[in-house]
């Protein structure tokens, strides 16, 4: 059963401009991983209104790890709340790696958030999929990305 109420598969709706910026961020950061925060609201499903590029503060392993500065995340949370929005999830890139979660992603993954993973091959070819964890002990399952023009 979907926790977001659309069909059998959860859906996250993302404006095309926001989606394109996530892909552009992944290309710009290549060969390092980029990361960011997506905010919006939940009505009949998750609807992203905007994304915020975040700094990857895992400088030692930026080629295969990311870490969002908790202070930056706290500020984005505060700002989003004053605008009536909420943090829906996060995005990060996998340079020269598929757009599916790794063991490290699962180890750090948190229930309820969307994790959008952008694969970047050679700094040019990009693809993205979104993943969620519905239960603390459950694996990631895919949620459908609906791009809104």
């Amino acid at each position: 059963m979907s926790i977001f109420g659309i069909g059998n598969k959860p859906v996250i709706s993302i404006p095309k401009s926001v989606y394109d910026d996530m892909l552009a961020h992944a290309k710009e950061a290549y060969p390092h991983e980029c990361c960011g925060v997506v905010v919006g609201g939940c009505m009949k499903g998750k609807i992203v209104f905007e994304s915020h590029r975040a700094k990857n503060i895992n400088l030692e392993r930026a080629n295969d790890r990311y870490l969002i500065d908790s202070k930056e995340l706290h500020l984005i949370d505060r700002m989003s709340r004053t605008q009536g929005m909420d943090i829906l999830g996060f995005y990060h890139s996998h340079p020269d790696h598929p757009d599916r979660p790794s063991e490290t992603d699962r180890e750090w993954g948190q229930v309820g958030y969307s994790y959008i993973i952008v694969s970047v091959k050679g700094g040019q070819e990009v693809s993205a999929r979104s993943w969620i964890i519905e239960d603390e002990k459950a694996p990631f399952t895919e949620e459908k990305i609906k791009i809104k023009e």
């Binding site: 895992n58 295969d64 995340l73 490290t104």
Partner: peptide, 11 residues
Amino acid sequence: SIIPAIAGGRC
């Protein structure tokens, strides 16, 4: 504010 740590990576 309780803020989760957000991290991960390709491998």
